[in-house]
Design a protein around this nucleic acid. Structure first.
Lengths: 342, 342
DNA sequence: CTGAAAGCGCTTACAG
DNA sequence: CTGAAAGCGCTTACAG
């Protein structure tokens, strides 16, 4: 079942070694022989069986893509775009992407993805937060590894991030340029590095604009230790309004939080942006569907995936290279929710 | 590098055959030997190399998941949830999911996914529409195949669908029960079977409710030959209003179209649902974020993926079984956009 | 109940 | 420049 290298060799009247050399382009094969063999390959549309090649090469040509099931189940299409980018780029390296979602409470090593148990991948990408224990396991097992939008303290691992700090700088500058000064920040769990960086970006930009230093326990800041969701936005804006009734703008750690915030502000009959401007982060699919449409920081999600694959491939090819962090630039997409002039 | 079955055999003082038999649970092995071997396996945490097993078994344990890049890039998280369901269920069969997106204009067989060229999967799931030529290719190559939410005329293939007709029946009944009678339908390309079925469901339900037969060119019906997107909703509702100014409700072929519809109605200062009720289909992530929140038919996306894997596995295990279509039931989620009583 | 041996379809030193 | 042979790490008739 299925044509093999042996068949091709027989038909072309050469040995399997020669066929193999022709396919790989390695070694010396006379032009004449090469042509002859190539013709047979083309005629029969022969493709080597990956399983056999994998065994002989001690290389699978597969890359694992691990994501927590919470992230994959999330309403935003954020990580599915990152995945898409990874898949597109994996193809450019003649590589396949094997997907596995993991539970946040998975047993290690009992419940690790099948492709790890069976050593069926050459490297692994982890998108977003997963149990730190899993990352430590991967690191220990010496599996080439790239993290996207996540980090484990004290562990040197190749990582791809979006430029969170610059994103917040763009946001604050945009607001300040409209003479807005009282700017709140609504955030989520500080455990996640991007959320932390976004708050830091906010702090830095506020200071830079001469609006003083906003500490973590400042009343302008609402911060909750949970997954970011609409509720965080709803509670956050309520809390902030209680403390600072004349707040002029609120920056949310991401679009989901901002959507909750907008919903709550509408309920409170606040006008957006006239009374309060709202800004999100991620520029997710529904940013343009909120009412009013949401100003947000555009994160190039495809690029995050693409860059992660590139970094992973280079790590596989050069295991000794120094660990690096690649930062993907972001843009501010200005929509109605933050344009006071409207 | 990596512990092999030979190592285990040597350590346990048996042959590799015996180790293999213990692992697979096939054949007879004395309890004593089995224990002895199992202990060594556990102690060394030995896992067989998948590539070797694949070669020996002529079975890869991989399943391919193919989706068009347009679908994967789409704003809704629809197919990424289907994918998630497939991944979860694949695991239950000790199987890995290899993902590949394909362009709608891909060259066949030149540009087919790597896992097809290398015969690296035991079967394939195709989610949503892809080039019909690709499906014919898969069928010709005799690769076990399951389609989700798609169909090719005159081709017998296992398929998983959501219950589109019942969905529309739920919608129409819900509207009719509120004494709404003038109900328009806004749709997309008839090429897609689900869209076709939804319109048919609408026709049937309208007739059933005594509201007459609505033909394809009826003024109540706006139908456009393109991908469904917000523009279809925007243009659709404008067109319908031109023809039937006193329209009471509009049923959209999916939530994206409905979102466009809502946006346009707001622009026209129509009150939703007071002047016009709006209903979508899919119950996508942003259905609850539109203003007002959108009534929609909930499609169990995870289940679509789960059921597709089950069907595929049973096809792989029993290649001769009759081709079947499995229909996943749907629910109506009633929100503000269609509740006249509010 | 267990082991020796062949085979799965490739690749790659090695000889010539 | 090309071929014979060994090897990758498994599984599975087959013998005993």
């Amino acid at each position: 079942m299925g044509i093999t290298i042996k068949d091709i060799a027989t038909i072309a009247g050469v040995s399997t070694s020669t066929v193999s050399l022709v396919m790989s382009g390695k070694g010396y094969v006379s032009n004449k022989t090469r042509q002859k063999v190539q013709n047979v390959i083309d005629e029969y549309n022969y493709r080597p069986l990956l399983a056999a090649r994998q065994l002989a090469n001690n290389r699978t040509g597969n890359l694992g893509f691990i994501i927590s099931d919470v992230h994959l189940a999330r309403s935003e299409a954020f990580y599915s775009r990152v995945l898409h980018g990874a898949e597109l780029e994996a193809r450019n390296y003649d590589t396949s992407l094997i997907l596995s979602s993991v539970a946040m409470d998975l047993a290690i090593p009992g419940n690790i993805p099948r492709f790890l148990k069976g050593r069926d991948v050459d490297g692994v990408i982890v998108a977003g937060s997963v149990p730190d224990e899993l990352i430590r396991y991967l690191k220990n097992e010496n599996i080439p590894l790239v993290l996207i939008d996540y980090r484990v303290p004290n562990l040197k691992i190749d990582t791809v991030f979006m430029d969170n700090r610059s994103g917040l700088s763009l946001v604050i500058n945009h607001l300040v340029s409209q003479k807005i000064k009282k700017i709140a920040f609504i955030g989520g769990s500080n455990r996640h590095p991007s959320i932390k960086e976004r708050f830091e970006g906010y702090q830095i930009a506020m200071e830079h604009a001469g609006l003083g230093h906003i500490s973590r326990d400042e009343k302008y800041r609402y911060f909750i230790e949970s997954e970011t969701n609409m509720e965080v936005g709803i509670e956050g804006i309520s809390e902030v309004l209680k403390n600072v009734p004349d707040i002029e703008a609120v920056v949310c750690v991401n679009d989901t939080t901002a959507a909750g915030c907008i919903q709550q502000l509408r309920k409170l009959k606040k006008r957006i942006p006239k009374d309060i401007a709202v800004v999100g982060f991620d520029n997710n699919n529904y940013a343009s569907m909120t009412h009013p449409p949401l100003t947000s920081v555009q994160v190039p999600k495809i690029e995050l995936g693409v860059e992660a694959i590139r970094l992973l491939i280079s790590r596989i090819e050069n295991p000794q290279q120094i660990h690096q962090t690649r930062i993907i630039p972001v843009d501010l997409i200005i929509r109605e929710s933050s344009l006071k002039s409207i």
